[in-house]
Design a protein around this nucleic acid. Structure first.
Lengths: 295, 295
DNA sequence: GAATAAGGTCCACATCATGGACTATCTGGA
DNA sequence: TCCAGATAGTCCATGATGTGGACCTTATTC
């Protein structure tokens, strides 16, 4: 009955507030779960175990999501994946949350100037998700990071830049929440190593991923903030190791910092002109400890 | 109790299949309703009347959507609008439904070659929604259509191109479903006028909007299909009337047709290589007559 | 400062979501 | 060809969950 019981100690929190919409929460949790998985979709069994719900309930909720077009099921594989409506909804939401649009010019400038591939990354709970990848012209390119990919906060250049931009206690909370995932799936990103990386990033002024995720695929990153101080996202540049010597790092850090600052200016303008205040409840303000949007 | 009772005769359909997830359906209906509205968001009262639900239920479902980050509420105005998570979800869904990515090159070519603004539009039930707008270089530009805008199928160049690409009985169903909205909010797009436009479009090979929506803002469009024959979307070009003489229409129709055909080729490749078959249930396969995703 | 309207919450009731048990379908091995 | 095992999907009695009338709270108007 307790959701995600295989992850959370049965009574960790005394189930603070009964939501009054259990099934909706569960359905939206499934949506997030399916989105998390790479694009080919998930089989029912995996969704069942991943969500902690039982099969009939899961299926029923999936049918509701399918009715709304947010989820689709492939006839061949019977796998469930995000639907067309989710895509359309994203376009609609982009009118308010158009970080990509805001960042596109900057990313293009970065990739043109440096010839390397640049990225826009945002935070999503304890994870970082790559929103856009702008190809560089240099013929040897790393494809370690695609739009839509997600890794624990701290894994990867942009991701680490955002982690380092958080206050200390948030850094601890995030690393603790991700500890299991880090140890299991990210060798080379032990919790202590991450803590050291955070320190180094703050001193240096930009983050550095020296090929830890994919060998020879290096990257540097820099976070930018909303006017109210919250971390909004990060810009990063990736290249093969031979194009990431300490000298070139310093060189690349200049346009990177320039574009990150420009992003902050753009955000500030947006918030002032549209009088868009900080939303009452956003993904970022939800409990950080659950580690998932579910429940 | 009957959802949307102010629109549907109380017992029009004997409530075909009880879903088994009433609240989820309702919540997702709200999501769609909020997405439909232009970006500043909707006040609670409007959501209540627009959905046909009562206030406590609406509010409770909104809270669930807010917990998931799909909806946000502005503290000042207390209006509800799409949240950051909806935007992120769209990016995730784009890995499968990346029509925009697929179309970007074509749109850039169109805008560069013609100097005018070009658009990607898709169908969403009885409506057409603009997914992307690629600016042209010509100094006088029409801003009649922005990304995220939606109009009844048939209203606007791309929209009309898609309507004309449907089989006759679908055309009738769509126009009938939109009749009230057309008469109320789209003077110049009377149902009969639309039917005539469909015929003209089919004969001509491309659709034409002679400034019907916004005076002097003309456009031509052409639909493209998935390999299985379903309409996938439409490309269109907009310009001021003086740049849309019959001669120039014919001239523009050439690159427009070329790019639409290219889209069909790209889609065919995608479907073959990824073996992505037609989903069991998509937005497009849902009942066409309700006119809304809700219930 | 009273009146109006809109946003938001409470809680008893009964409707709707739940999940154990079942069936159908697919896959691979002998 | 048939069986074993695994995965997908459905049924339906039960009671937990979502519902909505009534009420409270906060802004705005005159």
């Amino acid at each position: 009955m307790d959701y995600l019981e295989e992850r959370l100690p049965q009574n960790s929190a005394p189930e603070a507030g009964l939501s009054g919409s259990q099934s909706v929460d569960r359905a939206l949790g499934l949506l997030s779960l399916i989105g998390r998985e790479p694009a080919e979709g998930m089989p029912l069994g995996e969704i069942v175990s991943g969500s902690g719900l039982n099969k009939p309930t899961t299926r029923r909720l999936l049918l509701a999501l399918m009715r709304a077009g947010l989820v689709e099921q492939e006839p061949q594989t019977r796998r469930y994946c995000l639907g067309e409506e989710a895509f359309v909804l994203g376009v609609l939401a982009a009118r308010r949350h158009g970080l990509i649009e805001l960042a596109m010019d900057g990313l293009r400038r970065l990739s043109t100037e440096t010839q390397d591939t640049s990225f826009l990354t945002v935070r999503r709970e304890n994870y970082a998700i790559c929103l856009h990848r702008e190809e560089g012209t240099y013929p040897v390119r790393t494809h370690a990071l695609q739009a839509g990919d997600q890794h624990p906060l701290g894994v990867g250049a942009g991701s680490l830049a955002m982690l380092a931009a958080l206050p200390d206690d948030d850094v601890d909370r995030v690393i603790t929440a991700n500890e299991a995932a880090l140890l299991a799936r990210y060798p080379g990103f032990a919790p202590d190593a991450l803590r050291a990386d955070v320190g180094a990033t703050r001193e240096r002024g930009f983050s550095l991923n020296p090929g830890r995720l994919v060998a020879s695929s290096w990257g540097i990153g820099r976070a930018f903030r909303y006017p109210d101080g919250r971390v909004a996202g990060a810009l990063s540049i990736a290249a093969i190791d031979s194009r990431m010597t300490p000298a070139r790092q310093a060189e690349l850090a200049v346009p990177l910092a320039r574009e990150a600052e420009r992003m902050e200016t753009l955000l500030a303008e947006m918030f002032v002109s549209k009088r868009v205040a900080r939303p009452i409840m956003t993904a970022a303000s939800r409990s950080i400890e659950t580690g998932r949007a579910i429940r």
